[in-house]
Simulated scan of single mutants.
Amino acid sequence: MRIKREKVSSLVLEELKKMIKSGEFPYNSKLPSETELAKMFGVSRSPVREALSVLAASGLIESTQGGGSWVREVNLAEMLEHVQFEMVKVQQVQDLLEMRTIIESEAAFLAAKRYKPQDIVDLEEALEAFRKASEDQFKIGYEEDYAFHRIIVRAAYNPFLTQTMENVSELHVKSLMFSLEKNLGWEEKRKEVFTEHVNIFNAIKNGDGIAARTAVIEHLTNTRIKLGDKRVSKQK
């Protein structure tokens, strides 16, 4: 099965979607390797890798370090009909993370000063949910991550901050899927991300706005570095 080379990654993506939808690659099954798929489509591995990244970011497949890619057990027909699959561009994710760093670090600073008791309860529950997701090697954990950060912004009690983040919520979720997917199979990396969340939580709970701001900046900066953003460096 050879396909035209114009917009190769997009064409590979469409073919993979069709094969998943038709059941040729059923849920809970392991996909062929990048090399095997490249040979199947008559293309190089690069467009195959890019197409797989989009499927992973869209939640249709899960990839594990050294374990290949697996089709997730979801309502594939509904997803493939109604979800708009877009090619994820790393630069766009990096730019979004830069904006999140600016907004969420200040939101965390304010949350440490303004939070109400229920906010801490909700934040602790979200942290526990993220811990459980982090310990599941087949779970990306983007929903749990999003919930945690959303509560922080809410706890700042500034409606403009809240609305600003709501306006980019879809992009926020997609970027989390894209970045966290890269930690699948890397237990140490997943532990590091969870620890960063714990640091943010403790600083807010302790009412330490400066520490909360610093913890958020460190967390999101590390994510940007992981995605190859040359505009930032490791926080000291």
Rank of each mutant, 00 (worst) to 15 (best):
I200Y: 05
K17E: 14
L127S: 07
R100W: 05
L123M: 13
I210W: 10
G228P: 00
A215Y: 03
V74Q: 15
E187S: 11
E166A: 11
P159M: 06
E125W: 07
E24S: 14
Y146K: 15
S58L: 11
L55K: 10
E104I: 00
L127C: 02
N28L: 09
R213Q: 12
A215H: 01
Q91W: 06
G228K: 00
K113E: 11
G209I: 02
S9N: 12
V93T: 08
T221L: 03
E73T: 02
E15R: 12
F85L: 14
F178H: 13
N183H: 11
T214F: 14
E187H: 10
S69R: 09
E78I: 04
K21D: 08
S58K: 12
M165W: 05
S179R: 13
I217M: 06
L123N: 09
M40D: 04
I210F: 05
E36N: 10
R224S: 01
S69P: 00
S175K: 05
N202T: 03
I225L: 06
G66L: 11
L180F: 07
V198P: 08
M177E: 15
V12H: 03
V216H: 02
Y27G: 02
H149T: 09
L180N: 08
R49F: 02
T223Q: 12
E73H: 10
Q137C: 07
